[in-house]
Design a protein around this nucleic acid. Structure first.
Lengths: 155, 155
DNA sequence: TCACCTGAGTTGGATTAACCAAGTTAGCAT
DNA sequence: ATGCTAACTTGGTTAATCCAACTCAGGTGA
């Protein structure tokens, strides 16, 4: 799986996102990172991912600017590095929220949502929605996909 | 890549979504479907995906209720089947929009966005955002991830 | 000084998935 | 009956993932 796809990545921003996020484990690592996990062993234990694959994915996420290495030291231990989300990584929250909402709706578990999104300060529950330029919500069913400036000229 | 992951799929809705969307090509096939492509040969030509893999992915997307098979007939041809988005498939639009927005922001091409989202009737441009219960937009930077009812009890 | 501990990785070999070119199939047309 | 088309299969190669075992760096305690 070279990166994740060629598929018009030059022009398609979804394909470009998938180049870095589309490989197995990548998005789950980001999900774990949003839960505050930072260390190799934590990712490994939580996800059950093979260590060589984890090494590769963490490296790619760092290269893509989604995670960054930060030195840490537990007392009595030598200095090691952990992985923390960058701004670009935190900007993936809508991707995770969208996946989460879809999974809850169309592939429900018996448990209810494991993660919810809320205002950092007030705790008010938040959800993802399409909004217009004024920030007013629109129903997803009313949304159409249209060609943007970067679309390939019609043949 | 068995499905896409075990990684707590039972409780994590992101993992459950990735079971069906996390394999190579799956999300790109859905993207093509939102652009109105429906046929095996179209997906194949657009994406450059191997035919055996495409067969597998289309089958899984149908099984997951994201696409459905619909018979069609070109005149002078025999009846064949094409693949169209279901409601569950159209409900993936936020996932695509989120990926798209992130890719445009953090992995820009020289071309600008290939796809935009707009009100179906008025053509007003729309974007994805977090909103509160009243449909009022909140800045993504203010959003926190919190444990929901389906979260695993703390150890 | 030196054996020992910890956590982040490597390494080698087996399994599974993706790739590719070539072939198959069903039904309509000539 | 022969050819055509578009949706697939098949067989063999290449690449990615998995897994268990091992390395490595540096700090500890004896």
């Amino acid at each position: 799986m070279e990166a994740a796809v060629d598929a018009g990545a030059e022009r398609c921003s979804i394909a470009r996102s998938l180049e870095v996020l589309g490989q197995k484990w990548s998005l789950l690592i980001v999900r774990e990172a949003t839960w505050g996990r930072t260390r190799f062993a934590e990712f490994r234990a939580r996800l059950g991912v093979a260590p060589d694959v984890l090494t590769d994915r963490l490296g790619r996420l760092v290269d893509a600017g989604i995670l960054e290495r930060r030195p840490y030291r537990e007392d009595g231990e030598r200095e090691r590095e952990e992985y923390v989300l960058t701004d670009a990584g935190r900007a993936l929250l809508p991707v995770l929220a969208a996946m989460s909402a879809w999974g809850d709706e169309y592939r429900p578990s018996g448990f209810g949502p494991a993660a919810l999104y809320a205002d950092r300060d007030s705790g008010t529950p938040l959800r993802l929605a399409f909004v217009d330029a004024d920030g007013v919500e629109r129903d997803t069913a009313e949304v159409a996909v249209v060609r943007g400036p970067g679309a390939r000229p019609l043949a």
